[in-house]
Design a protein around this nucleic acid. Structure first.
Lengths: 138, 138
DNA sequence: CTTGACCTTCCAGTAGATGGAAGCCTTATG
DNA sequence: CATAAGGCTTCCATCTACTGGAAGGTCAAG
């Protein structure tokens, strides 16, 4: 199979597949004309990568997961550790985004959004009312 | 004020401040020895940037916001549009992360996490049970 | 005069691709 | 057989928003 077929079958862009080869996640064979030739096992790894990436695993996580995937002596504890680490990072990100969302939604709801210049969003960003007394007015 | 003072007062790393100058977000003066000399207005812009960035606004959003900040003829509608756009991006990201989190938490809860190789996480990533019959076994 | 804390510029690297140029290979068609 | 379309190759640049580090100038204290 050539890269185009693999791209269609895995849903991954050919560019991405080449990139994954470049960083050592897959190692397809080569035909005499230089074209990459993908085996079924390459397809499997790429499909695996596609799913792992869609769950947000980092490339380095994916590398570890692929290694465990191919290791029959693996301990599921190692897989779980990677997944839990990723889950923790997701939770951090969610907390951060949720806080942003809350602050931002509040500001947006306070802004008239008309043709006048007065804007609580800019006031907040400029620090108006942030830390002090009347002296803070510029 | 030199960059070190500004860094201390805004909480932004000096590197970041130099970077903001490089991309045209601020334009501090220069002393004869080549050192950057920051006015109060530079401080204000940097503080503004720090807050906008902490709310997750992109650099380009920040550029637009700063321009509106300095424009007394602005319409708050323009500010609100930027903020709403950002809010929409946050909501997208939150939806994506929430979906990831849910799928991942489920997988993690299914995994024994012991010394045996059987692992529902890897099974899922490998597509086991995804779309088919027994023939899918490799 | 030296030491150490600042400051400068410039270059490289991060994550994870993606876009595009230049050029070879293959296949279908006239 | 020529040619044109489409597929493949490599290489380099670009994106976001910094961050790290090297090499070297500046300044105040002792």
């Amino acid at each position: 199979m050539n890269i185009g077929d693999v791209a269609r079958r895995t849903g991954l862009p050919a560019k991405t597949i080449r990139y994954y080869e470049e960083i050592g996640l897959i190692s397809p064979l080569r035909d005499e004309n230089g074209y990459r030739r993908f085996r079924e096992s390459d397809m499997h790894r790429l499909a695996f990568l596609g799913r792992a990436r869609s769950l947000g695993f980092s490339i380095e996580d994916c590398r570890g997961l692929l290694e465990l995937y191919g290791d029959r002596q693996r301990a599921s504890a190692d897989v779980k550790r990677i997944a839990r680490g990723h889950l923790a990072r997701i939770d951090e990100k969610l907390a951060e985004l949720t806080a942003m969302r809350q602050a931002l939604a509040h500001l947006v709801s306070c802004c008239a959004g008309d043709s006048r210049p007065d804007c609580p969003i800019l006031d907040d960003l400029a620090g108006v009312g942030a830390a002090g007394s009347d002296d803070d007015r510029q």
